[in-house]
Design a protein around this nucleic acid. Structure first.
Lengths: 257, 257
DNA sequence: ATGGGCCCTCACGAAGGGTGAGGGTCAAGC
DNA sequence: GCTTGACCCTCACCCTTCGTGAGGGCCCAT
């Protein structure tokens, strides 16, 4: 009379019958008794335990941890909850960052529907292109021209949507760097260096060729020295230009030697 | 010469060799060519595609969706990203709520380390118990006494840590109701009614017996009428007592008839 | 030719179940 | 007493994204 079949327990608790079978299998929730017909019958104390299970599961705790929690009376529930809370916090922080990245990406994709802007940003509009090349040659005495030419050819062959993605990735990386700067992460911190690696990969994708150390360092100087890049980065976040330069060169020294 | 083996690509991109095998298996990233020896060789365009894959993967997109995205040139990247963003937003909101629940739970668990308070809260300290019983009898003319007695026996048999969890769940539910009230959710909204169901389950766990409609409605009146409960709920959030009462009775009418 | 480092193809495993297939059981109505 | 439909059971494979071997071939340098 105080015994419920799987279907009833499922309806009462909102979980599926299969889930109850599963919990039985792994020993998380055994039925109070098994009928002679092989049926599972759950009593009140089983429902109580299921309550506890669902409560902790809702907190995102793995089932094995819940079993340990409920079976070991001396288990330290407080510290378990605390470490679990920390995991959740990181997950939420990461989720927020992903949302921000998506927002930037969306803005870039939508904004770049006029492909002009894309070209202008990457410096492939003929006029901008010519200006950059002249400036590069004057400043660094040639040698980067072929890379820019490669980049041009690569992007031209890439098609519009891939190029837009590339732009979006660049925007996302800039946003990530700005966030790192505002969070006070040192330019040589692990997180920022990971971003530098992604920047390097991004350049490789744009150039259709991985940069060597000299090229990557030259690029970092270019960002700092060229007024159009400076304006771009400073508009996003004050001090971002130098931060980016330092971070990229630190990466170049450590990883591209 | 522009062809990289798995290990090299793995090092360049930061993914594992196994992951590259997997991406090949599911057709997400095929090598540019296969050697006569069965080796995978990746060219520049493969690296570029891998860049795109990793970018979208980092946004939490499932691999199948990434494949669709990259293979269908007419794919609507913007709306895909937007719906993905929405999923992330819900996930973050849920994560935040879970953290809050854990905080409340932790507060309750730590506060309840002195078991006195637990007993007092649930009304099982002898003195409080006696007062409640007297009050109940006077007000509702007996009939709930046996339930309180059951509850007492049930909790006594339950052990301290399970009882503390029960207290914590109650606290979490109260907090959730307070949040619903502050968010402006009507007492008969789906979200609030879901909370009411959980409250009902919680009562069932505490009583060691599911309440019928009369008992649950009586309980809701008890919360509104009894000064100790009123004080408790109003301290948490002004108006919570009535809100709770209305919500619980709406649930009782719909689900416990 | 013989190490040592790559590379390959299976194939099992995990978390939390979903989704059948194939077959037994229970309760109500006729 | 029989049928019907709603339940119940036990396999047992499927999902996702790879990690982690096992067992065996390939390449390059000494």
């Amino acid at each position: 009379m105080t015994d419920y079949t799987v279907k009833t327990v499922a309806r009462l608790s909102g979980v599926s019958v299969r889930t109850l079978h599963h919990y039985d299998e792994i020993g998380l929730l055994k039925p109070t008794r098994m009928g002679a017909n092989g049926y599972r019958y759950y009593g009140r104390e089983a429902l109580l335990r299921l309550q506890q299970v669902l409560f902790h599961r809702e907190l995102g705790m793995p089932l094995a941890a819940i079993a340990a929690l409920l079976d070991d009376p001396g288990f330290d529930r407080v510290s378990a909850l605390r470490s679990h809370r920390e995991r959740l916090r990181q997950q939420v922080a990461r989720g927020r960052q992903l949302i921000e990245t998506i927002d930037v990406t969306l803005a870039a994709l939508e904004g770049a529907t006029k492909m002009d802007e894309t070209k202008m940003y990457l410096g492939f509009e003929p006029e901008t292109q010519a200006r950059h090349e002249a400036w590069l040659t004057e400043r660094y005495g040639g040698g980067m021209d072929d890379r820019v030419a490669q980049s041009k050819a690569g992007l031209a062959a890439m098609g519009a949507s891939a190029a837009q993605d590339l732009v979006a990735q660049g925007e996302a990386l800039e946003a990530a760097f700005a966030q790192a700067l505002q969070a006070g992460a040192p330019a040589d911190s692990a997180a920022t260096q990971a971003l530098a690696r992604r920047w390097c990969d991004w350049i490789a994708a744009a150039w259709n060729r991985a940069p060597d150390r000299a090229a990557f360092e030259g690029l970092s100087r270019l960002y700092e020295d060229h007024p159009e890049f400076r304006a771009r980065y400073e508009a996003r976040c004050a001090g971002l230009t130098e931060y980016l330069g330092v971070a990229l060169r630190a990466f170049a020294e450590r990883e591209l030697s």
